Amino acid sequence: MTADDQLAAIRDRIARAARLARRAPEDVTLIAVSKTHPIDAIRPFLLAGHRDFGENRVQEAEQKWRPLQEEFGGTRLHVIGQLQSNKAAEAVAIADAIHSVDRSSLISAIARAIDATGRRPACFIQVNIGAEPQKGGCAIDHLPRLLAEARAAGLPIAGLMCIPPAGVDAAPYFALLAKIAREEGVAGLSMGMSDDVDTAVTLGATHVRVGSALFGARA
């Protein structure tokens, strides 16, 4: 399949799920997760007109996206992986959105970088929705305090992000994140990947992070 075909297939899934939920498909941002994939694999999607991409590691993002951003205008880069506080300035310098804000030290580092550069990437607070010790994200009980800290620090809060536990039905976790977002007064929901994008959109996702369904399995 060509990049156009792969994008069309995912967009069709998003549109069908959105219609079921009586939502507008254009209200869902498709983030093509290009982490670990080389420039040559990314370029066909840019040529097909896609502009939102996700990377895990800031250093990899800088190496790949500086030349691609010069070649293709209007690209929007989303940092979706765990972010070390000492990489916050680099992330703010290159990212249009950061989806993994999950602790006080990172909030402070991002706020300092925003003040220094004037760049204001959209920030999603990552919630450890399944209370899994091996995953990033703040505990559900800690979210109100962390959101208050982020707002006080002047971060542009776009919404919440989660990665549900693997191998189980994601729907209850997506529904829970949507409920928490309503209670906390935030609009954005970064949730849903290749296997469960349909469920995520039905339950209110505003941003979906799709990798393998577009680029194939990572090496």
Rank of each mutant, 00 (worst) to 15 (best):
residue 26 E to L: 12
residue 171 A to V: 13
residue 93 A to W: 02
residue 218 R to S: 02
residue 22 R to Y: 10
residue 167 G to P: 04
residue 39 I to A: 15
residue 10 I to W: 06
residue 115 D to I: 00
residue 42 I to T: 07
residue 21 A to F: 11
residue 127 V to Y: 08
residue 81 G to Y: 01
residue 183 E to T: 08
residue 84 Q to M: 11
residue 103 R to Q: 05
residue 18 A to D: 03
residue 56 N to Q: 09
residue 136 G to D: 01
residue 171 A to Y: 09
residue 65 W to I: 13
residue 150 A to S: 11
residue 121 P to D: 05
residue 136 G to W: 05
residue 124 F to T: 13
residue 38 P to F: 12
residue 11 R to I: 05
residue 205 A to S: 15
residue 34 S to K: 02
residue 194 S to W: 12
residue 71 E to I: 05
residue 189 L to W: 06
residue 94 I to D: 11
residue 41 A to T: 07
residue 72 F to W: 05
residue 178 A to F: 06
residue 49 G to F: 12
residue 113 A to S: 11
residue 195 D to R: 13
residue 180 I to K: 05
residue 121 P to W: 10
residue 176 L to F: 11
residue 132 E to M: 02
residue 115 D to P: 06
residue 113 A to F: 07
residue 172 P to N: 01
residue 81 G to S: 09
residue 73 G to H: 12
residue 50 H to M: 01
residue 183 E to R: 14
residue 201 V to N: 03
residue 152 A to T: 14
residue 39 I to G: 13
residue 45 F to Q: 02
residue 115 D to M: 02
residue 208 V to H: 06
residue 210 V to C: 08
residue 47 L to V: 13
residue 203 L to M: 12
residue 17 A to F: 06
residue 59 Q to I: 05
residue 156 P to V: 07
residue 156 P to E: 06
residue 69 Q to R: 15
residue 93 A to S: 13
residue 72 F to R: 05
residue 152 A to L: 15
residue 73 G to R: 14
residue 7 L to Y: 09
residue 90 E to S: 15
residue 28 V to L: 07
residue 195 D to A: 15
residue 21 A to E: 05
residue 209 R to H: 08
residue 54 G to K: 09
residue 3 A to L: 10
residue 116 A to S: 14
residue 213 A to V: 01
residue 212 S to T: 15
residue 96 D to E: 14
residue 16 R to F: 10
residue 101 V to R: 04
residue 157 I to L: 11
residue 6 Q to E: 14
residue 69 Q to H: 08
residue 53 F to N: 06
residue 83 L to F: 07
residue 35 K to W: 07
residue 201 V to W: 05
residue 50 H to C: 01
residue 59 Q to D: 10
residue 66 R to I: 15
residue 21 A to R: 09
residue 99 H to W: 03
residue 188 G to C: 13
residue 114 I to S: 03
residue 106 L to Y: 06
residue 187 A to Y: 04
residue 207 H to W: 15
residue 124 F to Y: 13
